[in-house]
Write a protein that binds this DNA or RNA. Structure first.
Length: 216
DNA sequence: GCGACAG
DNA sequence: ATCTTGTCGC
């Protein structure tokens, strides 16, 4: 499989993306994240369920698989999506939406990891990235909740959101079945006292925990 | 050719 | 993403 074939696949699958406001009053949020071990060809993916009302984690699952694709900007989903779905399939709790560590439509072909995952599992997904992949924006003001929109090819593809004063902003973009403003609102609602929204923060630390346990 | 480049 | 100790700040 060459990159041009993967580009065709992304262009074909993106036709299935639906971008609409997320109005539902949600409660259970699923978040995914992956970690790797230096010398090994393994990938550890985790899926956790966060109860937004009680602000607690109600389920954690993980899956360890083999890396089948290198990291290439614009093709991250092909590296992490299979193992990530394996982790999600172990989740027994039902949930309303998924938050992904990566971009949604803020992607060269408007089909980042969050969009790819959303289309495959047919669930609302929001991309929550720590840095930019593509696009232009003006730096948001320095207070929690401040944000500016991200543009690419004269198209609004996401938002740059300051989730905490004094820290670098997050790059938020809709993956599937949500829109930009709904995504920003949800990410801010789920952010407590750290830069990352709680679901992603918990998923990341759990992925680190599983990795350390695997080492021994 | 040069710079940019999710995790 | 990974490795890695101390250290500065709230």
């Amino acid at each position: 499989m060459e990159l041009k074939d993967l580009v065709n696949l992304q262009n074909a699958l993106k036709e299935r993306i639906v971008l609409s406001p997320f109005e539902k009053d949600y409660k259970l949020v699923l978040a995914v994240d992956s970690s790797y071990l230096k010398g090994e060809d393994r990938i550890i993916s985790v899926a956790i369920i966060y109860n937004k009302l009680d602000k607690i984690v109600v389920e954690k699952q993980f899956n360890i698989g083999k890396i089948s694709f290198p990291y290439i900007p614009g093709f991250l989903s092909f590296r992490e999506i299979d193992n990530t779905i394996s982790a999600i399939n172990k989740i027994k709790t039902n949930y309303d939406l998924i938050i992904v560590d990566g971009q949604g439509i803020a992607h060269p072909r408007n089909f980042g990891f969050a969009s790819h995952l959303g289309v495959l599992v047919n669930k609302p997904t929001i991309g929550c990235a720590k840095s930019k992949l593509i696009g232009e924006f003006v730096e948001p003001e320095d207070y929690k909740g401040a944000f500016s929109y991200l543009y690419y090819n004269s198209l609004k593809v996401g938002a740059v959101v300051r989730t905490k004063k004094g820290v670098k902003p997050l790059f938020i973009s809709p993956g599937h079945m949500v829109d930009i403003d709904s995504s920003v609102k949800i990410i801010i609602e789920l952010t407590e006292k750290y830069r990352q929204p709680e679901p992603i923060r918990v998923a990341h630390s759990f992925a680190e925990e599983v990795k350390k346990a695997w080492k021994r």
